[in-house]
Simulated assay, not measured.
Amino acid sequence: MSQGDWQHDALRELSQSGPAAEPSTPTSPPEQPEPPEDPPPGSSRMGAPVPASGPQAAGSRDPRLPIQTPESVPTVDPRLAGTLGRPLHGDSMARRARRSVRMLGSSVTREVAEGTRLAQEVQQPVTTGRVIAVTSIRGGVGKSTVTALLSRIFNHYRRDPVLALEADAALGTLPVRLGAESVRWSCSDLAQILSPSMQLTDVIGYLVPVADGGWLLPASQGHVGPPLDVRTYRTVTLALRRYFAVTVVDCETLPGEVARTAMDTAHARVVAAPMTAEGVNGTRVVLDWLAQLPHAALASTVVALTASSPDTTLDVRGASAYLRETGAAVVSIPYDRHLGGGGPILNAMLGRETREAATTLAAEAMRRAVQVR
């Protein structure tokens, strides 16, 4: 099947299912789906039978028993929602005014040309779904924020389906960052009901629509539960590659088992690292580990150096050069007031430098993901 046919069919199915922001949620899943067998690595193709192994394949659920539809749970407690302030623009009004004055002549031409080049990288066509895994060496360094930024950029530039998949069940913030008001079905729920006979219009009924486009599959319903296991992760990611051109995975932190599996099996990898000396040092250890994998993992790895403060003292140029010695690419994401405030990420509220950095990161990750066969 050609890439154009697949994208056309996918979009046609979406248009027939009604508005993308309001997919219908099935009250019951397909009856007794038969689990497919595991294929050789890399043999999955868009539209081919879905390779899977998971709770269903392992016989952990009796297919004769109905699946209980989970209750919808708000991502933020309604009692707390009223305390959230108005989102700040990433750039102050004074900074935006100064930039408007400087936007003259050749600088505008160069910026437009660079933006066009990056957009073309992000829009590269695919014939099989690409998986981009995002992880970090510890929590709180912007892993979910980077995942949300990538999802926003891909949805902005691409016309084919994009999925943000949360693979960190430990009270992850990805649903909040993508503006989801509530969540229902989780990765573990979906792993039990996925079937090769399901169409894209069936699958999106179990997902959360994202306001600016695309879909979200959360890891949990916002409470502390059992961690996502490797078998469930593989079942869901291998199956959903049929339906989505790009899947951005918010993994648990390293050295978690699912994170290591995701980094080993993804088409491209993004390591979120804090813009600190210890963060760079720890990330170098991760890159050295990736260099020991049996395939060329570093060639498809991008480090996202994230600033959590406007007063960063790290020599970013020197730190980036240190990380690039391994063969990985490095993209710096500057401090942004909009990102620092928490809550949903809105494209229009991002600072100019942040938006450009996020687009660069998406282009670097997509170029590497497409190179993997």
Rank of each mutant, 00 (worst) to 15 (best):
A357T: 15
A363G: 11
S186A: 03
R12A: 12
P70C: 13
P19N: 10
H156E: 04
R12T: 15
S106R: 15
A266Q: 05
G54Y: 02
P66H: 06
V50A: 15
T360G: 13
S72E: 14
T232N: 02
R177C: 02
G115E: 10
T283F: 04
Q221E: 06
D91C: 08
A170V: 01
T359N: 10
P274T: 02
R231T: 09
G115K: 01
R269V: 12
A369D: 03
S60W: 14
S151H: 10
V224I: 02
P29M: 07
I137H: 07
Q7Y: 14
Q56M: 13
A304G: 03
V108D: 07
A363D: 13
L194D: 01
D311A: 13
T128Q: 12
P218D: 00
P63C: 15
A164C: 01
A169M: 01
G279N: 04
G279P: 10
T276H: 06
T27S: 13
S92K: 04
I132N: 00
A164R: 00
A272Y: 13
L174Q: 00
T232R: 00
V101S: 09
D212W: 03
R45Q: 14
G115L: 07
S60R: 12
R184S: 00
R158I: 00
G140F: 09
A328S: 09
Q16K: 10
G351C: 03
R95Y: 05
A191D: 02
A307Y: 03
E114T: 06
G90I: 12
S320Q: 06
P196C: 02
S332M: 08
